[in-house]
Write a protein that binds this DNA or RNA. Structure first.
Lengths: 208, 208, 208, 208
DNA sequence: TATGAATGAGACTTCATTCAT
DNA sequence: GATGAATGAAGTCTCATTCAT
């Protein structure tokens, strides 16, 4: 039954888990958590269903791994990128720019975002992790820059957090748009152009 | 077994479907389509499981009814609200204002939006309906106003659609924020303040 | 809501039960006992579902009524038809002839037969009733005639019951053929011709 | 809860499907398609309910498998059995003899026949398959023999198809009798005696 | 390590029966 | 008498998880 000479299985490739996570992201992203079948994930990853359980205890654990794995390390390093003593405009452009390029280089990020939104009630810990690890740092990075701009007189008064949301909101909208409406035939969204035009607008609008 | 003297059920007038839809929105909104159990919806609506099938053929049909029912009629009338010959600033404020108040008066709209995002792959027709009925009209309302502003020289050049997304994005972000992060303890978001501050910023930033 | 002047209901027509039984036979015959829905029977009978329960206690009771009602009274009188002192050939022809004409005049009889066969395990009492009321009398009528023929030397020796079955079998086959294979496109079966040709054959074959 | 030391289940070789089909025939045959519960079939087969779905997609598919599996290969080879140049009498006896022994060696054939009759309206494709695969070949085998007999002058004139039905009808009656009336206490039917006496009668009756 | 057959709880859906109107 | 909305038990099917191999 087996091709003779072929070993029945190979020793666990060190990157098995990564492969599984990638396949799982694909499937979760398409069907959502509950409708995604481990069968499909296993097939997509090229392993047996049982093998999934060698690496992840439950479906939820796999899902968590997917969502956490998507936290692009680069995202976390944005703070580093945004220097401290450069002019406000430049700092803001830099911050958003890094964010956009992180998004572009990780085309699955929109899918993960969608999953977080969709499953936040069922798996609150995941929403929490993202909130603490991605959202909050990102928002405070941007709002810190803005706050600094306000102190230096470059930015008009107003709630820095809300300014930050005003800056990021369209990017989020863009990401979800891609996930939600492009698959049904909506015009593709030029995310970079959107980001750039919006940045210009908001920076100008925030001027003191 | 039965409380004697209590009728086992009562004939409800023609508003049964409305009651069921309301209960279903609650449950779908909390658990998503697949995890929502008809049992729970029935209990929430105060009817038996079987009764749901008197009004809706399948779980999906019920879901569709929920999503379509949430298309606030007021949303659809925004176009009326935005007159033709008033100055750009005023028109834009009016358009966004009506939108915000529609959102405020229908606190479930965020939940429905979340459902659309979450289930768009599984039920593309729903995403399509929303795209055609809500999203596109809204976007073209706003971008028309902007286009008019550009023609009258009040607004600087730039893609009107993207301007519109820049305007609306933070509202969408705000709605989803409420659904996603407030339940896990994030600070509540002052949507109206966000809208107003963002409107000021963007209108200023869009000046010619 | 109601057309005024129209009475909400009419006084129970004395033949309501007959109408219901007729409708039920139709539906049972098409779908079998379990798959037949009271809803359909009610609609076919032009009454409400609840009304069925004014005349029949349960679905089974209705089914029993259908099956019993189909016991063509004429069938039961065959015995009368077959005189005592006429020659064997004539008696046999008479017996089978009455049977065939009973079949022809009640085109639903095949459907009922099918139902008996199909449900005999689930509702043994029905099979019993038919066995006692229809089958046994019929068989003993025929086999009595044959027995008489044997005594008078007109018929060769052999088990009279089995002779009777040899006589009736093709008729049963014909009835079930109509129910089973004609609906899927098989050639219609000339039951009368079959009966007559078979009668000739068997009578000749049974000659002493 | 579990008997310790006892494995919860055992991997069964490729004959699982056969076992399930056998169990299913038993249960379907007793209760008919709709009343048969998968639960019971599973229990009868010694597997879990879910296991059925490893081998059959739906209840209907299982039913189809049962009915098709019952098409006794020997039935299909009858044609071979009936040589071409032997005298009519002998050929006819041979044909019916093989049929009878096929019936005897497969005691479930009557149950399947009953199922076909009962469900032909609900699953016409099955009736079609049987009609094409079993009924038609059988009838034309017999009627061909008769036709040959007519050409050689051994058999009197008459419709060969109807002669064939006259020959086979009592066998069908016998099979259904066993399924329908023996379980409720009717005398068991000596099918072989019936066949032999009937064959004698009809062959004699068909003589030129 | 790896497989995939087997399990069984869980959920949607149907429909005979009841009962307020 | 008559209706049909409402009930709820029952049954099919799915799929995460286990475990013999």
């Amino acid at each position: 039954m087996l091709p003779p000479g072929e070993p029945k299985w190979r020793r666990r490739a060190a990157d098995r888990p990564k492969e599984i996570i990638a396949a799982a992201l694909e499937v979760f992203s398409e069907h959502g958590f509950t409708r995604a079948r481990l069968d499909d994930i296993a097939r997509a990853a090229g392993v047996s269903k049982g093998a999934l359980y060698l690496y992840f205890e439950t479906k939820q654990d796999l899902f968590k791994a997917v969502v956490q794995d998507a936290i692009e390390p680069r995202l976390l390093k944005i703070r580093t990128g945004a220097g401290t003593e450069i002019p406000f405009d430049e700092a803001a452009r830099l911050g958003v720019g890094v964010l956009v390029s992180a998004i572009q280089s990780n085309p699955r990020i929109g899918g993960v975002l969608k999953l977080i939104v969709a499953e936040s009630r069922n798996l609150p810990e995941l929403a929490l992790i993202w909130h603490q690890t991605v959202i909050t740092p990102l928002l405070s990075l941007i709002s810190d820059i803005i706050r600094r701009g306000q102190r230096s007189g470059e930015v008009r008064s107003g709630d820095p957090e809300l300014f930050a949301m005003g800056l990021l909101g369209p990017l989020v909208l863009g990401l979800l748009w891609r996930e939600t409406f492009e698959p049904i035939g909506a015009d593709p969204l030029p995310l970079e152009t959107l980001a750039s035009q919006h940045l210009d607008t908001v920076l100008k609008g925030m001027k003191a």
